[in-house]
Structures are given as C-alpha cells and as structure tokens.
C-alpha cells in the first residue's frame, strides 16, 4: 500500500471522477461546494462517484455514509479518515 494520500491528492482524484461522471470542470470541484446544490449532481451520479472513489482510494463508502457527504470537503475528509 502506498503512502496515505494528502488532502490535495484526494481532492484532485475526486475532481477527476466528478468530471468523468458529471462533466463538472475540476476547477469547480472545491471543498465548500455541495454536490447537489452547487455542482448539480443527481443521486444516480452520486452512486457512480462513490463506486469510482472506492476503487480509486481503496475505501468503503456505505450508503448511510454516502448520504452524509454533502460537500466535496465532506468527501475528502471521509476518504482521508478511512483510507
């Protein structure tokens, strides 16, 4: 297992996934943004993003945890704590 990624690296990786799944520019994927309200990502795309994030970072994101990840920052924090 590689070294634990920095928050910057996690943010960068999430931004790549969000761009792939939802077409949001990586520059717009910043910690304070809400996935639903700011980035216009629907619940179906959130499922895809979670699956890709699990694969990319080697974490598990159960559905009840996913529901709590409102902002990009929440997701970075979750991944960082579970990686």
């Amino acid at each position: 297992m590689a070294d634990k990624p920095s928050d910057e690296k996690i943010l960068e990786g999430l931004a790549e996934i969000v761009e792939e799944v939802a077409g949001v520019s990586p520059d717009d994927v910043t910690p304070e943004k809400s996935f639903v309200d700011d980035l216009d990502i629907d619940s179906l795309s959130m499922v895809e993003i979670a699956v890709q994030a699990e694969d990319k970072f080697g974490v598990k994101i159960p559905d009840d945890e996913l529901a709590n990840l409102k902002t990009v920052g929440d997701a970075v924090k979750y991944v960082s704590a579970h990686v």
């Binding site: 619940s43 179906l44 499922v47 895809e48 699956v51």
Partner: peptide
C-alpha cells in the same frame, strides 16, 4: 453489483 450502472433502468 457495484459496477452495475445506477442508470440501467432509465
């Protein structure tokens, strides 16, 4: 299951 698209049905 994990890789099945959530968009499958629509």
């Amino acid at each position: 299951l994990r890789k099945v698209s959530p968009l499958t049905v629509p």
